[in-house]
Simulated assay, not measured.
Amino acid sequence: MKSGETELPEYSSSDEDFVDPWHVASKSATGIDYDKLITKFGSQKIDDNLITKIENLTGKRAHHLLRRGVFFSMRDMHGILTLYEQKQPFYLYTGRGPSSEAMHLGHLIPFIFTKWLQETFDVPLVIQLTDDEKFIWNDITVEEANRYAHENAKDIIALGFDINKTFIFSDIEYISSCPEFYMNICKVQKLVTYSQVKGIFGFDVSDSIGKISFPAIQAAPSFSSSFPRLFKSKKDIPCLIPCAIDQDPYFRMTRDVAQKLGGVKPAVIHSTFVPALQGVQTKMSASDPNASIFLTDTDEEIRIKDYACGVLAREQLQEILIKLLQKIIGKHRQNRALVTKEMVKQYMTPRNLECSIVT
Rank of each mutant, 00 (worst) to 15 (best):
E173Q: 14
G160H: 02
T58Q: 06
L240R: 10
E101G: 07
Q88G: 03
T6Y: 03
H107S: 08
L129K: 01
D171S: 10
T82P: 00
L117A: 05
I51W: 03
I38L: 02
D256R: 05
R229K: 15
H23K: 08
I212N: 10
V70E: 11
G330M: 07
V339T: 06
N146R: 09
D131E: 05
G263K: 08
K190G: 07
I320W: 06
G160Y: 07
K134F: 09
G4D: 04
I293A: 11
K2D: 11
I80F: 12
F71K: 10
W116I: 01
D297C: 12
I112K: 09
F135V: 01
S14D: 12
P215K: 13
I80Q: 13
G31F: 04
T340N: 10
I156Q: 05
D248Y: 01
I172H: 13
Q118L: 04
N56L: 05
S224F: 01
I157R: 03
I46F: 06
L8A: 07
Q316G: 13
K198Q: 15
G69Q: 04
A29M: 02
I172T: 15
I140V: 13
I185D: 08
G263P: 01
K260I: 01
A267P: 02
P221L: 07
S14L: 05
A102W: 09
A102R: 08
A216N: 07
P266W: 06
C239Q: 12
A29T: 02
G97S: 12
K341L: 09
T298P: 05
M284I: 02
F135Y: 15
L261P: 03
S13Y: 01
S233Q: 14
E144N: 09
D246C: 09
A62M: 01
G97L: 08
G262W: 11
K260R: 12
D171H: 06
L108C: 11
L105M: 14
